[in-house]
Nucleic acid binder design. Structure first.
Length: 544
RNA sequence: GCGCCCGUAGCUCAACUGGAUAGAGCAACUGCCUUCUAAGCAGUAGGUUACAGGUUCGAUUCCUGUCGGGCGUACCA
């Protein structure tokens, strides 16, 4: 419809002797207030200045020149300072409702990103411990944005980037080693800054089971580290799976050392004159890109900082031919992003192909009080514990509920309440309720013949159909802005629209034609709810 | 100090990236279950969009400044 209106307006403007390049972008929007019509444009106001004319006059002229199909648009009016409001014809609504029903699981999909290959990198927590609530937002946002890309036609790969070679991992190995010794009755102390979590002991125990005391005299921590890594990764994978997340690939930072990308990156930087030696370290001339300091790439110890592999990693991703690489990370990592962009553009890549989704921190609220966490200190709530407590659907929902750009308060008490306080049930309940009605409808009538949708004339029915039609747009916006919460906002409005309809219009009535039409409307609503929930990775139960 | 993000109803947050009378959910209050699921519905109350300027037909949205909060600002990741 938007396209149709844009085209009609454009033609009308051309008839008004405007040149192609005089026409600004024609924006069609859905007014907040339904009394302002179904679609509106501000084009007349935009043209007021260049045409030096009153916007309402321009609107009048424009409407005269427009040639609209009465099967699609029933009325056009000028309102306020110069808005042009369009109202849809009911025939159009019935056709579109028909379209939803025949599209089924596909309704809402688009070709916005078709032909694109997109890599979404997320979670990317080093295997030093179980995933915590802090990682949860990252995981769910990344996966859901990936789903949005899929719904808009892209081919998506989900990748988990990790590093098992750094100092943290060494300390982890040493922590396991210490617990292993303790397990065998020896005196041992956790290393400085060691990991205190209970899971370390568990890993030590499995080592005792596997190897007995044969590792007593190991001099370094590598065996312990290896065991810890694989045990922790198993857990992480399980946790993710439980959240409906399956990675397509795990990328080990070490690959970049082995295949020479790291060295190559440094060489290339030197060649381009953006790297230099000072105090035994190698520096990246980030001042050249507007930062107030240069940045160390390789420490005087010879060990690279994380920035260097980050740059090499992004080059690697781009080499793999992705049209877009999206990184998902928390606000604390934002500072590395410009360095990576500058780094890859030095290497000759197009910065536009890398984008980032930054989210603000999660505050877990327990017993009405914020709860501070640290992985190393083992005072954290794992994602598994959270899911045990509130369930998988609720967990996903809460992480998606808010704009990534704002701090998220995860109130465990609220999430646990199965009742009215919990917003996820509102959507699932609407779906279950419709399914229940459809089951009953199947008992009382035979729906083999086509329904006469023109029976749907009640305000609540018409409003619901219009809301259903807004689904593709909601997905488009959510994808464009990488903001899954827009889908939730939409679904809430949809569910609310359905409940109004449910309340005002009895579906199972004696009037068979009417019942059939209403049943179809309910079925379409259930379909859109289910489609929306599947984008969010949340179940749409048939019974509750 | 500098950089990024944020400040909207008592609380948690929306507002289609500059549009029309700023909206939901909790919490509060008033009604509604012999009728398809009351995990629901209808209604009431609640606001100087932190503050002060500016840009224009029009600002919660953009610009400047002030105040308040979060995160960075390492030869840590």
């Amino acid at each position: 419809m938007d396209q149709y209106l844009q085209e009609a307006i454009r033609k009308a403007l051309l008839n008004m002797n405007l040149d192609e390049d005089q026409i600004p972008k024609i924006v069609i929007e859905t007014p907040r207030d339904p009394s302002h019509g179904d679609s509106a444009t501000n084009i007349a106001m935009q043209l007021a200045k260049p045409l030096r004319n009153n916007p309402r006059k321009i609107a009048e002229q424009l409407i005269d020149e427009m040639n609209l199909d009465s099967k699609k648009v029933s009325s056009v009016e000028i309102a306020g300072p110069g808005f042009i409001n369009f109202r849809y014809a009911t025939d159009y609504l019935y056709d579109e409702l028909e379209h939803i029903l025949s599209s089924g699981d596909y309704f809402g999909r688009s070709d916005q990103n078709s032909g694109k290959r997109i890599l979404v990198e997320f979670v990317s927590a080093n295997p030093t411990g179980p995933l915590t609530v802090g990682h949860g937002r990252n995981a769910v946002l990344g996966d859901t944005v990936a789903r949005l890309f899929e719904w808009t036609g892209a081919e998506v790969q989900r990748e988990y980037y990790f590093n098992n070679a750094g100092r943290q991992m060494r300390v982890l190995g040493q922590s396991v080693q210490a617990r292993y010794l303790e397990e065998l009755g020896k005196d041992a102390e956790l290393p400085e800054g060691g990991y205190e979590g209970e899971y370390i002991k568990e890993i030590a125990k499995t080592l005792v089971e596997k190897h007995g005391d044969s590792l007593l005299n190991e001099v370094d921590e590598s065996i312990f580290k290896a065991e810890a890594e694989s045990a922790i990764f198993d857990e992480i994978r399980k946790t993710l799976e439980r959240m409906n997340i399956v990675m397509d690939s795990f990328f080990n930072e070490n690959t970049l050392y082995e295949n020479g990308s790291i060295d190559k990156t440094i060489e290339e930087f030197r060649k381009k004159g953006v790297a230099y030696d000072k105090d035994g370290a190698v520096w990246f001339k980030t001042t050249k890109f507007g930062k107030d300091k240069d940045t160390v790439l390789v420490k005087s110890t010879g060990e690279p900082t994380y920035r260097l592999p980050d740059i090499a990693y992004h080059a690697n991703k781009l080499d793999r031919g992705f049209d877009l690489c999206l990184d998902v990370f928390g606000a604390d990592h934002i500072d590395t992003y410009p360095d990576v962009l500058n780094g890859i553009s030095v290497l000759g890549y197009d910065k536009q192909r890398v984008d980032v989704l930054v989210y603000q921190f999660v505050t877990l609220v327990k017993d009405g009080k914020p709860f501070k966490m640290s992985t190393r200190k083992a005072n954290f709530v794992t994602l598994d514990e959270l899911m045990d407590e509130v369930g998988e659907d609720v967990t996903r929902f809460f992480f998606l509920m808010r704009s990534p750009n704002t701090h998220l308060e995860f109130d465990v008490a609220q999430a646990k309440e199965a009742g009215e306080k919990n917003p996820v049930f509102y959507l699932q309940y609407a779906h279950a309720r419709i399914q229940s009605i459809l089951r009953k409808a199947a008992d009382v009538a035979d729906f083999s013949e086509n329904a006469d949708l023109s029976q749907l004339v009640h305000d609540a029915e018409v409003a619901l159909i219009k809301k259903l039609l807004g689904f593709p747009e909601a997905i488009e916006l959510a994808t464009k802005h990488r903001e899954p919460h827009r889908v939730i906002t939409y679904l809430n409005e949809l569910a609310s629209g359905f409940t109004t309809f449910y309340h005002d219009c009895r579906i199972l009535t004696d009037d068979k034609k009417l019942m059939q039409a209403r049943t179809e409307l309910a079925r379409a609503t259930a379909q859109v709810l289910a489609n929306g929930l599947s984008i969010l990775g949340i179940s749409a139960p048939d019974r509750m």
